[in-house]
């Protein structure tokens, strides 16, 4: 099973992910323009882009734990991260242009007053330097160690995304809590073993 996944992953080019991600975004946009997303296409598009941003980002966090289990999908990590960033940026743009209708005063007010919007915007902001340094040349210039350190920003960014999702609900929905739970588990897996389990007297 594991070998088969690894063999398939070797054959599948990463372009496959980029193309798939682009098709999904185009399909969402097209459906929204076509008015086939129901009575509220703005919310449907906004939520669709947001939830897929979170899915791509959570998938990028799965790569390392899977590697420990012997499943090698490392070559897809950059694509997943960049897709997550692109979807989050489109989600933000949809909010500004279509949901808020470019009402700058109200947008500025929300960006400073509303905790769930602040948390979401912070998450997107944290992803910016990661997207900007996602090319091979950046790794060379920064040096692998510094680059790795910088890219640990992905952890708070993804946590912010999941918390943002939970905070939007009128009540806490099971769905958003499941996403937050997955994010927490994937983040706890980053804590070094030695620190994860408190030393116990025997």
């Amino acid at each position: 099973m594991r070998d088969r996944i690894n063999a398939t992953a070797r054959r599948v080019p990463t372009a496959f992910l980029y193309i798939g991600g682009a098709i999904l975004a185009l399909w969402l946009l097209f459906a929204a323009v076509q008015d086939s997303l129901g009575p509220d296409p703005v919310k449907a598009l906004e939520q669709g882009l947001g939830i897929w941003a979170l899915r791509f980002l959570l998938a990028s966090l799965c790569i390392t734990p899977l590697m420990r289990a012997g499943i090698r999908l490392l070559k897809f990590r950059r694509a997943l991260g960049l897709l997550g960033f692109a979807y989050a940026a489109l989600h933000f743009a949809t909010w500004i242009a279509l949901d808020m209708g470019l009402r700058w005063g109200q947008i500025a007010g929300d960006l400073t007053k509303r905790p769930y919007i602040i948390v979401g915007a912070l998450g997107l902001l944290l992803l910016l330097p990661l997207a900007a340094t996602s090319w091979n040349g950046a790794i060379r210039r920064l040096g692998a160690a510094a680059w790795n350190r910088l890219h640990r920003l992905a952890y708070p960014a993804i946590l912010a995304g999941a918390v943002h999702f939970v905070m939007i609900g009128k009540v806490w929905t099971g769905e958003s809590l499941v996403y937050l739970g997955i994010a927490m588990v994937l983040l706890v897996l980053r804590v070094p073993q030695s620190r994860r389990i408190p030393a116990r007297a025997t």
Partner: peptide
């Protein structure tokens, strides 16, 4: 958690 100064009209489209 949000402003009540404006509203989106359902049916107004994208």
């Amino acid at each position: 958690r949000w402003s009540q100064a404006s509203e989106r009209r359902i049916g107004a489209g994208l």
